[in-house]
């Protein structure tokens, strides 16, 4: 790890100011950033911890019934506090990493990093969530721009994420055996106005919506509706843990299981 300055502001405004510094880097739970620093793969001049900002923590229900989760809220907190209002999302949070990871890692950190195999991007995109920053509101459909890339500007902070609560939802995660990230994860949410299917782990472009499946399920919400639908393996990730074809196949299996879990 290279030397860096460390700041821990207590307000969003102070954090935004601190992040204006040259080569300043926001620190959420550090579950990706700290290992990266230890490997000397990044050299920020200062780390700005977002963990001291009370207004960025916690889970609450908005007037319209949606769930607002502070950007610095840990996975363990979401797993616990969202369980009543949005059990599928709570279950997703409860499957991330191990207890140590869940007690450090934050939803804002995960979404901002947009790891192509992370769970939260699927949850946010599948739910049609709104990512709220210090500057604006971004719909999940506009937020994820490809592997490790988002719509966030330099120094922009995810202060909270607002999740509309669907009628039913399920996250089906097939584990990569080593990292236990998603080899393929499918988040399916059924709203009054339609079904959303978001896939993580599978694509070289990061999390994506499987629109053909959504269309088929909007016509008929049962597993068999997916029969004959196939994901094109061309853009899938192929690596040590699974070929492109295998991942494409798993997208179908996990989507079917998500549907079956919702009916």
């Amino acid at each position: 790890m290279y030397s860096f300055e460390f700041e821990k502001p207590s307000t969003i405004a102070d954090a935004v100011t601190a992040l204006e510094g040259e080569e300043a880097q926001a620190l959420g739970g550090g579950q990706t950033l700290i290992p990266t620093l230890k490997q000397r793969l990044a050299a920020p001049s200062s780390l700005v911890s977002l963990n001291g900002i009370a207004e960025m923590k916690g889970v609450c229900v908005e007037d319209d019934g949606s769930l607002a989760i502070g950007g610095a809220t840990t996975h363990a907190t979401v797993a616990r506090e969202a369980a009543g209002n949005y059990p599928a999302l709570a279950a997703l949070a409860g499957q991330i990493g191990d207890p140590a990871v869940r007690n450090r890692g934050t939803i804002g950190g995960s979404l901002a990093n947009n790891d192509p195999a992370a769970c939260y991007p699927a949850g946010a995109l599948g739910s049609g969530a709104t990512i709220i920053t210090n500057a604006r509101q971004i719909s999940a459909d506009d937020f994820f721009e490809g592997m490790f890339t988002t719509a966030l500007d330099e120094g922009e902070i995810i202060t909270s994420v607002r999740f509309p609560v669907p009628q039913a939802a399920s996250y089906q995660k097939f584990l990569q055996p080593a990292s236990r990230f998603a080899l393929v994860g499918v988040y399916l949410a059924r709203f009054a106005d339609g079904v959303r299917v978001a896939v993580t782990g599978a694509s070289e472009d990061g999390v994506f919506r499987w629109s053909e499946a959504e269309e088929a399920l909007n016509k008929e919400f049962r597993g068999d509706a997916l029969m004959g639908l196939r994901i094109n393996p061309a853009n899938m990730i192929g690596d040590l843990h699974g070929s492109k074809e295998y991942r494409a196949h798993l997208v179908g299996v996990m989507t079917k299981r998500a549907v079956e879990a919702c009916v």
């Binding site: 055996p177 080593a178 990292s179 990230f181 040590l240």
Partner: peptide, 23 residues
């Protein structure tokens, strides 16, 4: 079932951490 120490065609260790080496 799990463990696989794998090198790519250039001799780079693909499974060089617990992210890819499954214990």
């Amino acid at each position: 079932l799990l463990e696989n120490c794998a090198y790519d065609e250039n001799g780079q260790l693909l499974s060089a951490s617990y992210m890819d080496y499954a214990m």
